[in-house]
C-alpha cells in the first residue's frame, strides 16, 4: 500500500508538470505563427477562437483524424519509434527544471548534465526517422541534422562550463541561487549570445533549419510522416525549443528569481518569473525565424567549429583566470 501511494503521488506530480507543458507547447505554436505573421505584415491564424488561440487545437484535431501512412519499404518498427523517441526525450527533460526553490520534480545533483544529455539524445529521433523512411530526402535531412546537432552541442557544452565555473555546482537550483547578486547574462554576455545562436542550431530552427529546408529537401526527415506521427514530431520539436529557452533562462537570466528583490516583485511566485523569461526568449526565437535568411551548410559548419568553439574556449580560460586571480572561485 505504501508503494502504491508513493506511486500515485509521483504520477500526480508528473501529470501536474506535463499537462501544462503540453498545453503551452500548443499555445507556443500559435504564438510563433502569430509573431512570424506580424513581422511580415500579415494577420496569421486569427479565426479559431479569440485571437485564433484555439488554432493549435483545431490543427491537433485535424492531425488525429488523418490517416497514418507507413511506407511499405520503410523499416516499420524504427519508423514508428522515431516520433515517440523525439516526443519522450523532449518531455522527460522537464523533470529537472526548477520552478521555484521547492517546486521541482527531481532535484538531482547533476541537473545541468541531465539536461545536456537529454538534449544531445534528441538527435536520435531525427536520425531514426530519416533512416527508417528509406527515402532520399529524409535520409539527407537526417544526416544534415546529425552533423549539425553534434557540432553545436560542443559549443553549448563549453558555454555550460563557463557558467559552472562561476557556480561551483551542477544542481540547477544552486545555479539559480548563485545569480542572486547578478544574473550571469551581464558578466557572461558574449556566452549568452553564443548560447542563443547554438540553441537555434540545436533545435533546427531557422536560420539553421537545413535538416528540413523545404526548398531543397521537401520537409527533411519528416517527409514520409503523416497524421499523428507528424504531429508528434512537431510537438517534440516545439517542446525542445521551450526546453532550450528554459535552459537559457536558468543559466543566464536567473531562473525563477525576480528581477529586483523589492516589495511588489517579491509577491509574484517564482514560476511566473521563469515562464516570463522563457516567453521572452521564445519571442526572440520567433523573431529570428521571421527576419533571418537560411544559412548555407558550409557556413553553418564554419560558424560552429571555427568561430563559436574557439571563442567559447578562450572565454573559459578568461573566466577561470579571472575567478582564480581575484580569488572568487566558489569553494564548498
Amino acid at each position: 500500500m505504501e508503494y502504491l501511494s508513493i506511486f500515485f503521488e509521483e504520477v500526480y506530480k508528473i501529470l501536474f508538470l506535463l499537462v501544462p507543458v503540453l498545453v503551452s507547447v500548443a499555445m507556443i505554436v500559435w504564438l510563433d505563427r502569430r509573431v512570424w505573421a506580424f513581422v511580415q505584415k500579415r494577420q496569421g491564424p486569427n479565426v479559431v477562437g479569440p485571437f485564433g488561440l484555439l488554432q493549435s487545437l483545431a490543427d491537433a484535431l485535424k492531425y488525429i483524424f488523418k490517416e497514418m501512412i507507413i511506407p511499405s519499404s520503410s523499416n516499420k518498427v524504427i519508423f514508428i519509434l522515431a516520433p515517440i523517441v523525439t516526443m519522450t526525450l523532449a518531455l522527460i527533460a522537464w523533470a529537472v527544471i526548477p520552478f521555484s526553490a521547492t517546486q521541482v520534480l527531481a532535484d538531482i545533483n547533476v541537473g545541468v548534465l541531465y539536461l545536456f544529455a537529454v538534449s544531445s539524445l534528441g538527435v536520435y529521433g531525427i536520425i531514426m526517422g530519416g533512416w527508417a523512411s528509406n527515402s532520399k530526402y529524409p535520409f539527407l535531412g537526417a544526416i544534415r541534422s546529425a552533423a549539425q546537432m553534434v557540432s553545436y552541442e560542443v559549443s553549448i557544452g563549453v558555454i555550460i562550463i563557463n557558467v559552472l565555473l562561476c557556480v561551483g555546482s551542477l544542481n540547477l537550483n544552486d545555479i539559480v541561487l548563485a545569480q542572486q547578486s547578478m544574473w550571469y547574462v551581464i558578466p557572461l554576455f558574449p556566452m549568452f549570445v553564443i548560447f542563443f545562436i547554438s540553441a537555434l542550431a540545436e533545435t533546427n530552427r531557422p536560420p539553421f533549419d537545413l535538416p528540413e529546408a523545404e526548398a531543397e529537401l521537401v520537409a527533411g526527415y519528416q517527409t514520409e510522416y503523416s497524421g499523428m506521427m507528424y504531429a508528434m514530431f512537431w510537438l517534440g520539436e516545439y517542446a525542445n525549443i521551450l526546453l532550450m529557452c528554459a535552459m537559457g533562462a536558468i543559466l543566464f537570466l536567473g531562473g525563477w528569481l525576480s528581477p529586483l528583490e523589492i516589495y511588489p516583485f517579491t509577491l509574484v511566485p517564482g514560476a511566473i518569473w521563469l515562464i516570463l523569461k522563457i516567453l521572452i526568449l521564445f519571442f526572440l526565437f520567433a523573431l529570428v525565424k521571421a527576419i533571418v535568411p537560411r544559412y548555407r551548410y558550409d557556413q553553418l559548419m564554419r560558424l560552429g567549429w571555427k568561430v563559436f568553439l574557439p571563442f567559447s574556449l578562450i572565454w573559459v580560460v578568461l573566466t577561470s583566470s579571472y575567478l582564480f586571480y581575484f580569488n572568487l572561485l566558489p569553494v564548498n
Binding site: Y114, V123, A146
Partner: peptide, 24 residues
Amino acid sequence: EFLGMIMLIVYVGAVAVLFLFVVM
C-alpha cells in the same frame, strides 16, 4: 550519477551518433 550522465553524453550523444553515421 556523474559517470552515468557522462556516459550518456559522450557515448550515446556523440560516439554512437558517429557509429550510426558510418554504418548508414
